[in-house]
């Protein structure tokens, strides 16, 4: 039985009525979302949020989050939903300002779970300086969803002086990577498989806004930035190579990967170059400003392990290659689908 009366908060959970648009929906708004996200636009409770934005171009991005497990070392689905969209704005040089949040809840989701997720979103939003100004909640029958899915849309403002685009990456640019690869993906995989890993590996879920701004200040000639999410470093580099029709070469030996992630990748038969991250980025910076961009990253805790890992070349346009540890060169291709663990 999934019936759980709202009058008993200790074991309260989401029921279909919470998505009805009626009184139970209003209760959800009043008791959970409003207190957590409190801001003027939200409190007006109109069908739309009205906000003022400073001069500049508007950057928009949207993203849906379906991670399982919902909670993992280093974060939860709520934080991911905020950071993910904020990061997509930030790497475009935007100052993130507002978010909308859509929730698809499965009947039976404990109210306490929703509360923790929403609370984490509020903290993350505050950290990034964004307000969650409007949203939506739908409830689906038990079995029609997987506890909770979150979609966020972000609005940011890009100053006229900032012109970043994958297409403007130039031959000679240096590839600056903000830190170690694979922490998020391996954390999630280990949780799913119930595997205890050595060390205190946790997801790198976090905001890239500070890093992006630091890079732009130190290296105003920066041509493009990308956050590394699904598909890892390899996908981000391949996308840029294809957009700009340039070649990119990275040096495997310079790419930071923690001992725990490397060990887990060996065990599962995965390549850290393709494993997901949630708080890492690459910047494409003209050679003369690359050192400055690197130092700017390294001065921030989230960029302490930043490295220059490669450069843009006019050889093999549209292709990414890597120098292996034994000094040979090979393609770093884009995966067609997720990596699957190997038999042997």
């Amino acid at each position: 039985m999934t019936f759980c009366p709202i009058a008993q908060p200790a074991n309260a959970c989401i029921v279909l009525g919470h998505g009805s648009g009626g009184r139970m929906s209003a209760e959800l708004m009043n008791e959970i979302f409003l207190p957590a996200f409190r801001n003027a636009a939200l409190e007006e409770r109109n069908d739309q949020a009205m906000v003022r934005v400073p001069e500049g171009r508007i950057a928009l991005s949207t993203d849906s989050f379906v991670v399982k497990p919902l909670f993992f070392p280093g974060g939860n689905i709520g934080e991911l939903a905020v950071y993910g969209t904020v990061n997509d704005l930030a790497v475009g040089g935007a100052i993130p300002r507002f978010l909308t949040a859509g929730f698809i809840l499965e009947e039976g989701l404990p109210m306490a779970t929703l509360r923790s997720i929403v609370a984490a979103m509020a903290v993350a939003a505050e950290r990034c300086g964004v307000s969650i100004v409007t949203g939506d909640t739908k409830v689906v029958e038990k079995g029609s969803g997987d506890q909770i899915f979150v979609t966020t849309t972000g609005v940011g403002v890009v100053p006229e002086t900032v012109q970043l685009s994958a297409g403007s990456v130039q031959v000679g640019d240096r590839v600056v990577l903000s830190g170690s690869l694979g922490d998020h993906g391996i954390t999630i995989l280990a949780q799913r498989e119930g595997m205890e890993l050595e060390g205190d590996l946790k997801s790198d879920a976090g905001s890239l806004f500070g890093l992006c701004q630091a890079v732009l200040q130190a290296a105003p000639g920066t041509h493009a930035m990308r956050d590394l999410t699904r598909g890892g470093l390899s996908s981000a580099l391949n996308e840029i190579a294809a957009s700009a029709q340039v070649g990119i070469t990275v040096d495997e030996a310079t790419i930071p990967v923690s001992k725990t992630v490397r060990g887990a990748c060996e065990l599962f038969g995965l390549d850290p170059m393709y494993v997901a991250n949630e708080g890492k980025m690459v910047a494409f910076v003209p050679e003369l400003q690359a050192e400055a961009a690197l130092r700017a990253m390294q001065e921030l805790p989230e960029g302490a392990a930043a490295r220059i890992v490669g450069h843009v070349t006019n050889r093999h346009p549209g292709m990414v290659t890597t120098r292996t540890r034994i000094g040979t060169e090979r393609i770093l291709t884009m995966l067609a689908q997720d990596q699957l663990p190997r038999i042997c």
């Binding site: 993203d63 849906s64 989050f65 994958a166 391949n238 957009s243």
Partner: peptide
């Protein structure tokens, strides 16, 4: 060979989907 020794296929640029 396909993975390591082939001209890369044109990658679809889709920022930040997950």
């Amino acid at each position: 060979y396909y993975q390591y020794r082939r001209l890369a296929e044109p990658a679809v640029a889709m920022g930040g989907l997950r």
